[in-house]
Each structure stands twice: as structure tokens, then as C-alpha cells.
């Protein structure tokens, strides 16, 4: 009976959200990025739970607007977007297929599990980040802070291309 109250299945909503590209990395979706944490109907209202990637990420507002627009396009007008902090967003949520999409796009995906990396407080260059262009592991860190909050700037010593590396957090 409850199902009759709303027109769209939860799985259908997930499909819609999975088509919304990340505003800064358009080859992966908000779902693949791990920003969407939950979708549920509460009575006749659709509630979407999202979590920020970085606390100050300016793309978060854009993501909310994109979700808003996509839902309206499907005729869903009664919805609410909730911001959730726990559990904190981590690159560990990225699937292997998401990582390979990043690599094809030219961004080196996060290499290690965060457990192995968080906590090093002195000089801590990520080891063996393969160059997304030529696959060489002869790469070096230029800066831990890159073009967006979530990326470091690296350089390949073989093909000499500079590239973005998606930080492990």
C-alpha cells in the first residue's frame, strides 16, 4: 500500500542520481563518487542523503542544485536533501570501475587504502602512483594540493606530463 503513495521506485531514483556527473570530474557520477549516501521515501516525500567530499568543496552546492534539477525533470517535486557528516566520506568507497574511469580521463585514482596512509605527519609522498598517460611509476609529487581540494599535483619523470592524483582520504 505504501508504495502506491509515490510514483517512483527507489532503484529508479538511484538510476537518475547515477546519471548526474560530478561538476568537476564529469566522467564519474555523484553515486560513483560516493556523495549520495541514501535514498528513501518518507511518506510522500523523497529524502536524499548526501555527504561532503571536502568540508569546503565549492562543488557541493552545485551537486545539490544538479540533484534538485534532475528530480524536478522527473516530476518529483516533494523532496528534501539532507547533509550527513557521519560516516565521513572516503576514497575507499570508490569501486575499481570508477577508478579506471578516472584513469582513462587522465586523473590518477587513489592508490592505497586510507588506513595505510592517514596519520603520517612528516613528508609523505605517495609511493608508486602510475602516470595515467604512460603508466610509468617513475613519478613525483609536486604539491599535495592541486586543482581541486580532492587532488594532488604530480609529474611523470618519463613522459614529463604533469597530472592530477586523487588523494586518499
Amino acid at each position: 500500500m505504501v508504495k502506491m503513495l509515490h510514483s517512483k521506485e527507489v532503484s529508479f531514483i538511484w538510476d537518475i542520481l547515477n546519471e548526474i556527473p560530478d561538476p568537476e570530474i564529469p566522467v564519474i557520477s555523484l553515486v560513483e563518487l560516493g556523495v549520495v549516501r541514501g535514498v528513501e521515501w518518507v511518506d510522500t516525500q523523497l529524502q536524499i542523503t548526501i555527504t561532503p567530499t571536502y568540508s569546503g568543496c565549492p562543488a557541493m552546492r552545485m551537486m545539490e542544485m544538479d540533484i534538485d534539477q534532475s528530480l524536478r525533470k522527473e516530476g518529483i517535486l516533494d523532496f528534501k536533501i539532507n547533509m550527513q557528516y557521519h560516516p565521513a566520506w572516503t576514497t575507499d568507497w570508490m569501486s575499481e570501475s570508477t577508478k579506471s574511469k578516472l584513469k582513462t580521463y587522465g586523473i590518477a585514482p587513489p592508490q592505497a587504502h586510507t588506513k595505510q596512509r592517514i596519520g603520517a605527519l612528516i613528508s609523505d609522498a605517495p609511493n608508486e602512483v602510475p602516470c595515467p598517460q604512460c603508466n610509468s611509476v617513475n613519478t613525483k609529487l609536486i604539491s599535495e594540493f592541486g586543482s581541486t581540494a580532492c587532488k594532488s599535483l604530480m609529474k611523470c619523470n618519463d613522459c614529463l606530463e604533469a597530472f592530477d592524483y586523487f588523494k586518499c582520504i
Partner: peptide
């Protein structure tokens, strides 16, 4: 506690920098 768990990930990068 939840905001701190989020912030600590970023603070680690700041301190290293």
C-alpha cells in the same frame, strides 16, 4: 564527533604541509 572525524582527514594534510 562526526564533524571532527571529517576535519581530521584535512588537518592531517595541513599539518604535513
Amino acid at each position: 564527533a562526526a564533524i571532527a572525524a571529517k576535519t581530521i582527514k584535512e588537518s592531517t594534510y595541513h599539518l604535513r604541509h
